[in-house]
Lab assay of single mutants.
Amino acid sequence: MAAGGDHGSPDSYRSPLASRYASPEMCFVFSDRYKFRTWRQLWLWLAEAEQTLGLPITDEQIQEMKSNLENIDFKMAAEEEKRLRHDVMAHVHTFGHCCPKAAGIIHLGATSCYVGDNTDLIILRNALDLLLPKLARVISRLADFAKERASLPTLGFTHFQPAQLTTVGKRCCLWIQDLCMDLQNLKRVRDDLRFRGVKGTTGTQASFLQLFEGDDHKVEQLDKMVTEKAGFKRAFIITGQTYTRKVDIEVLSVLASLGASVHKICTDIRLLANLKEMEEPFEKQQIGSSAMPYKRNPMRSERCCSLARHLMTLVMDPLQTASVQWFERTLDDSANRRICLAEAFLTADTILNTLQNISEGLVVYPKVIERRIRQELPFMATENIIMAMVKAGGSRQDCHEKIRVLSQQAASVVKQEGGDNDLIERIQVDAYFSPIHSQLDHLLDPSSFTGRASQQVQRFLEEEVYPLLKPYESVMKVKAELCL
């Protein structure tokens, strides 16, 4: 049975990233139509530049190519590739079939990587351009969430054990800070992308030097003109047959890092959902379990974690691919890159769409948070109580021993009897502590235990987050809708 299948058929496997999760716009960027249309555009740009620099290419040939950029006979191309065992030459023939007058000058002087690699770089750039505003929107939604809850005390956790208090907004800023680093890295790697350009079979530009009869300047002009037509500021000066596969490492490393950030955020949300302090959106008709109707599973956060793990592992592909590119190139890269580049971007696209949807509907339960604080705060307040007693004339050592005994009794009630923490009640009825009984409410005010959390939130948002989001103001209103 021949390899390949009808990918629109229910009898043929289709990647869930495309069929179930990723956005239509990201799927289109990695589609065959987008790819092969870009090949034709690159052939047109090459012909236009070659004509401008004096090669015998007519206006009629150029116009014929322009008129057929979208006229792609995919069936013919597939048949040609089956016959020739070469995808680029299959599309040269297919393009030439609908451009008979231009057929002889299509791909003039070029090698397969002229269309293959340059198209990949265009796709990487455009895919990054799709991700950047999506990530900015996630940051914006979380920034709104953090600002609104900047002063809401909550129990902090280290080692997932109760620690000092923080605020809900401050905790959210930990998430935002990681995503801001990801946004900066995505922008950097996007701006650092260079075009492969017009380089020939081993990167020496020998074929173009021959076409222009040894004119170095025209060869350099050709490279520059096509690079500018493709919208790049610069091209690699040095290439082998391909652009260095280190570029793929750079791009997928940034995406993998984004995956790590999203995994951490969504894990926190899942843990908070278990504590009943916070939940992701839950639709009115949504079913959490087929057997347990009360369940409210954090399905979206779980999906993000599941896909983020996949995204983090994909960076190993370009690392290994770059390491086995012998001399000017081997074909070890080809099949692998067809999979890992598309999957990385479709996965990143999915987790950003999902995280935006989550961040637009996060639900906080202040009463649950308050109750958990009441359970733990008495123990945390013991040092403040000791200091207040010393100020009232008591002995630190005597007070410490009193607190120690009462704390152990209260802990026994919590752990052995399943009761509430009654340390404060014990202190309130103990005559030894009568000098500070009137101060206990103040000493137990949760806001006095959150330090500068709310001020940190305000400063972080104003100095770091809002300036970073400013270039994306025009796209901030787009909502994230999930079908599944």
Rank of each mutant, 00 (worst) to 15 (best):
G4S: 14
Q177G: 13
G8D: 15
P16A: 08
F327I: 09
Q416D: 14
R396W: 01
G96K: 04
I105H: 12
A256H: 03
G418K: 01
S67E: 13
R37M: 14
L314H: 15
V390M: 10
Q409M: 10
I237R: 09
L130Y: 08
E60A: 09
K187Y: 12
I62T: 08
D445K: 09
L186M: 09
T154M: 12
A49D: 01
L352K: 04
P16I: 15
W175R: 00
E302K: 04
I427D: 01
L469I: 14
I369A: 13
Q61W: 05
D430S: 13
E376W: 05
P56R: 13
A322T: 14
K391N: 14
A260W: 04
D191Y: 12
N421E: 06
E328T: 00
I358H: 03
V364W: 06
P467D: 09
D441H: 11
I123G: 08
G240N: 15
N274G: 04
E376R: 03
W39F: 12
T38N: 05
Q161P: 00
L179A: 12
R426H: 10
G96N: 08
M387Y: 06
N126F: 12
L209F: 11
T119K: 01
I427K: 04
Q210P: 09
Y432C: 08
C340M: 08
L211S: 11
Q161G: 01
I139K: 03
T267Y: 04
T450R: 05
V368R: 11
D73F: 10
H7N: 13
G361S: 14
S474H: 14
L179P: 02
R245W: 01
G259D: 00
N384Y: 06
P366S: 06
E25C: 07
T158P: 00
M476Y: 15
H437M: 05
Y243R: 03
I123C: 09
S9W: 14
L183Y: 08
E383M: 03
E473T: 14
R374Q: 04
V92E: 09
F145H: 06
T201G: 07
P281G: 08
C172T: 12
Q455F: 15
K75Y: 10
L482E: 12
D87C: 00
R149S: 10
F195L: 10
I424Y: 15
S407D: 00
M26N: 02
Q241A: 00
Y34D: 07
S15N: 14
E401Y: 07
E370D: 14
L311Y: 01
W326L: 11
A453V: 06
M476P: 15
R426K: 11
E425N: 12
S359Q: 08
G259E: 00
L362D: 03
L468R: 07
L443I: 13
S151Y: 10
M65L: 09
E302S: 03
D398T: 12
P378N: 01
D445W: 10
V465S: 02
K82Q: 11
T239A: 15
T330P: 01
E425S: 11
N384M: 13
R338H: 01
L46V: 06
A127R: 01
P471Y: 15
G214Y: 11
H91A: 14
D144A: 14
V254G: 10
P56T: 11
Q184F: 10
L69M: 11
P318I: 01
R190K: 14
T166D: 01
T166Y: 01
P281T: 12
K402H: 06
L440D: 04
S334G: 10
I358F: 07
S301P: 05
E48L: 07
Q286S: 01
I373L: 14
A47Q: 04
R196I: 07
S454Y: 12
D317W: 01
R309D: 03
L135F: 11
K229R: 07
K101S: 11
V198E: 01
H310M: 08
K264S: 05
E79C: 11
G393M: 04
M389R: 09
E376F: 06
T111V: 00
I176D: 05
Q41R: 14
A18Y: 13
E383N: 03
M476H: 15
R245L: 01
D430L: 06
L443M: 08
Q325Y: 02
A110D: 10
L258H: 11
K246Q: 02
F212A: 06
A410I: 02
H159Y: 01
L468C: 14
R300H: 14
L377C: 04
I72A: 07
A3T: 08
D191M: 09
L362S: 05
L406H: 15
K224V: 10
S438M: 12
E228K: 14
E220F: 12
A78Y: 11
V219H: 05
L255W: 03
V262L: 10
R194D: 04
Y294A: 01
K229H: 07
R83V: 09
Q409D: 10
M89A: 08
H400T: 02
E464V: 06
R171D: 00
S412T: 12
A77R: 02
D332Y: 00
K224S: 10
R329A: 01
R296C: 14
A3M: 14
L165C: 05
I237D: 04
T154N: 05
G8N: 15
T111Q: 01
N421A: 13
G240H: 14
S407F: 04
V262F: 06
V457A: 08
G451A: 06
D120C: 06
L155C: 03
T94F: 06
L211C: 10
L121W: 01
R194M: 07
Q51H: 07
S9N: 15
T350L: 13
C172I: 10
R338L: 01
K82A: 10
F327M: 11
Q177Y: 14
R194V: 06
W45K: 04
G197K: 03
I105P: 03
V315F: 11
A453M: 02
F95S: 05
S448T: 11
D215C: 08
L108S: 14
E70Q: 10
G418Y: 02
K246F: 02
M89H: 05
V405T: 15
Q41I: 08
R188D: 06
E228R: 11
G8Q: 15
L46F: 08
R188A: 06
S474D: 15
